[in-house]
Write a protein that binds this DNA or RNA. Sequence first.
DNA 1: GAGCACTGC
Length: 911
Amino acid sequence: MRAEARLGAHEQRAPGLQPGVAQVPHAPAPRGAASGRAALDDVRCRATRKGFCLEGFEDEEDAVYASLDGALLKRAREPWRRPPPRGRRREGWAQRSGGFLSGAPGPADAAAFEAETSGRGYATFLPARRRLPAFKMREAIVAAVRSGAVTLVLGATGCGKTTQIPQFVYEDCARRGEAIAVVATQPRRISAASVAERVARERGGALGDTVGFKIRFEDSVTASSKVVFCTVGVLLKTMQSNPLLAGATHVIVDEVHERDVHTDFFLLLVRRLLAKRNDLKVVLMSATVDPSAFLSYFPEAAVVEIPGKTNYPIEEHYLEDILPQLRPRSSPRPRRSPFGDAGALEGVPGDAETIFARLKCARPTAQALADFHALPADFVDVDLVAAVVEHVHASQEDGAILVFVPGWAEIADVVKRLERDRSLAIHALHSRMPSAEQRAIFDAPPPGKRKVVVSTVLAETSITVEDVVHVVDAGKARSTFLNKQSLVSALRTTWYATANGLQRRGRAGRVRPGAWWRLYSSFQHAAMVDYAEPEMVRSPLDELCLEVAALGLGAPEPVLAEAISPPDEAIVRAAVDGLVRLGALDAEDRMSLSPLGRQLARLHVHPVLGKLLLLGELFDCFDVALTVAAGLGSKSPFVCPLGKEPLANAAKARLADGTDSDHVLLERAYAEWRARPGYRDRRSFCDRFFLSHQTLEYVDQLRRDLGSGCRDLLKRDAGGRARPRHAAARLSSALLAALWPNVAAVRKQGKGLALGSGLKVVCHPGSVNRSAADRLVVFYDVQETSDRYLYDTSVVSLAQVLLFAPDVAQSTTNSGRAKLAVAPDLQVLVDAAALDDVLATRDLLQAFVQRSVGRPTDDASARASAALAALFSADVSADFGDDDEEEERPPTKGAYRPPHSRGRGRGDGAW
DNA sequence: GAGCACTGC
C-alpha cells in the first residue's frame, strides 16, 4: 500500500467515485481546504466470501485491507447476543479510611494532652518553636480563628506557619475541652508526610498519636489523631462520600498561593460548604504578599500577617549590574519561534537611548540591554548563563551555585559549557534524569571544587539543596498551557512571574548570606506578571468535571464559573463533551453520572484510564490493562542521564523488541521489573534499562490501588489470571474503545492526522512508532512542544476501527455504494453485500460493550471477548510472547488476505 | 529526533 497515494483531495473523488481516480500517485495533501484539514482518501470495503476486504484501489497490490474473518465474525456474534449478566450493581462503597474523618469529633483527652505538653519531647522542641515568627503571632491567630469562619494567614516561607498554626488551633481547643479535629492540606504528598512527621516530633509523640497524615497509598491516621495532614486530592476524594466534611472542626488549606487545580477547586467547595456548616472554621495560608484575590473570594476573612523572615540577607543583582562585570560579548541571534513571541513582555524599552537615560549606565551596557530586550521570550541565552556562573565562581567566595533554566536542552547546553572547568562539580537536575536519585547533589563537593546544580523549576520547591549560596536565575519557566484553538495542551517557555522569582531567591541564603543573580533587567522585572496564571485556566478539566458530577453539584459549567479564576467555558464544554462521549455523563442533561460514570468516579485515575481498566476486564486482559492504566497515570518510568541518549534509546529498543505498541513496551518494562525477586535485582535492572525504580514503585502502588478499586467495583478478583490468548489484540481493542477518538492515521515517518480532531500529529521520537508508516495508532497523551507529539501509541487495525468507532455516518455514493464515515477523515466504501454484516456486527459489539462494561465477566462475556480477540489477532502482532503459536487455529486461516501479504500476523499494508 | 512540575477515599 502506498499511503501517500491515498491522500488525494476527496472532493475530487465525489463525482462518481470512478475506479482509478484514487490512483493519483503521490497526490499532495490538499492545502488550505475550507476546513483547514488534510483529508484522508476514501477506503473501500468489499465483501468476499470469507470476510471483508477494504481496499483503496482496484489494483490489489495497492489495496488497504481489513481482514475480518467471516466465520470468526459469525462465531463472535453469538455470545454478543446474550442477555446482560444478572446481578445488581453495588451502589455502596466500602469505607476503609480508618480513623480519617469518621464519627463525630470529640475533645482531646485531657490527661493525654497534659502528658503530651509536659513531656520531654515536647519541651525539647519548644525553644526552637518559640523562635519562629509564627509563634509570636500565636494569640492573634487563635483569636482570629475563634472569632470568624475564615482566617487568611500570610507569611513567607520559613516563618513556621505550616507547622505551628495547626498546633495552635489544636492546643487552644484542647485546653478548653472543646471538640477538635483539624484537617490541614498540602498540595504535595511529600510535604504532607514530612510536615506531619515534623509536627508529631515537636509534640513529642509518634505519627498517628495526636498527629497523623493521609496521602495516597499511605495512612498513619488513628482514632486518637486530632491533627491530620493530607493532600488536597485526598480531601477531595473524601468529599465524594462525606460532602460536608463531617468529623472535621477546622480545615487548614496551606499554600493557597500556588493556585493548583486541586486547591482552587477545594476553595470553591469550601465556600459552598460554609453556607451549610456554620460551625466549620477555615484557615487559608499563603506565602503571597497580596491577599486581594482571596479576600474578594472570602470577603468575611480576617487577615493575619506574619512578619519577618528567617533567611540570611541576600544580595540582589539585575542584568544591568552583572553585564559590566562580564567580558563584552556579542548578542546571540536566535531563530524565531514558529509560535511567535507569545510571552513577550510589554513596556520594556527596546532602544539603547531610553535605557541609557533611565539607568544612567555605561553606553555599552545600555546597548547590550537593548539587544537583550529584543530577544524572544522563549529563548534562553545559555552562553550568558554560563558566563555568569563562571563570573560568580571566579569572583565570589565558596558556596554552591544553583542555576535555574527552563528545561532539558538548556541544562544540557549550560552543563556542556561549564564542563571544561575542572574546579566545578556540576550536577544536572531534571525530573527525567536519574540524578534526582543520586545523593551527590546533596553532598558537599570534593575538596577544592565548587558545586554547581543546573536545574529546572524542580529545585524551586520540590527539591532543596541546602548549601546553596548563589542563585543564577534565567527568569524563565516552561509550563503547560491549553492551546485554545486545538484544545491540546502545549509546553511553552515564558518569562516567569515575580512570585516565582522570590521563591528562587529564597533558595539562596539558607546557610549563610547569599546572592541572587537575575539574568533579566529591572525593566523586564517591572513588566513581569506578579503571579503565574492559575493552573485551572490552563489545564484540561475532564477529571475535574467528573469530580463535579460525582459530588452532585450540578452542571460543571456554572459550578466551575464560581472558581477564583474561572476556566474558559469552551474548555469546560470540551471536558463535558469528552465525559459524555465516554459514557460517564448523561448525554441529555450533561451533568449526572451514568452507572459507568459512577464507577469511573470511584477509580483514582483519569476517567479514560478507568474505562480502559473496565474494558480490560471485559476483554479479558485485565492484568495488562491495569499495568498500562497505572503506567499512563504515572509519569514515564523511562529516564535518561544527561548526554547518554543513544545508550538509553538502545536500551529501550532492546526492551521494545520490535513491538508496535508503546503501551506494550510500558507493560513489559513493568513486568520485567516486577519479575526481579528483590530490591537489588530491580535496581540493577533499572540501571541497565534506564528506568526509574522510584517511578516503577509508584506504578506498582498505583496498580495495586486501581486493582483493589476494580475488585470492589466488580465484586470479584479482577485479573490475576494467566495471560490470555491474543493478549495484544485484546489490549489494543480495549485501548481503542477507551481512547476513541484519539486515533491517528500515520502516513509516513510517524507523521499523520488525528481522526478525532483533524489535527496534524507526529509520533514522539521516543515512541516505538516514531517512524511508522501507513498505520492507524491509538494514543492517550498529546502535547504541543516543537511539534504536536503523540507520546504513547499502539497500532490498531482498520478492522478494529471499523467495528469500534462509535458513530459512523452512512451515505450512498453516486455509484450506489455505501459510504461509512468512521471519522471525518476516514471514510470507508462498503459494498452492498457486506454492509449489513458490518453494521449488524457493529451494533452487536456496541450493545455488548455498553451492557457489559463495568460488570464482572462471566462465561458468556469471556467467550465473546475471546471471539473478538481471535477476530483481530491476525491484524495485531503478538507482542506478549503468548501462546499464539500453539493456537489450534492459525490466526489467518479463513481470513481474506491480500495477495501480497507476507508472513503471519499483520500483513504489510494491512491497517 | 526529544523530555516544566505536581496529584487521587
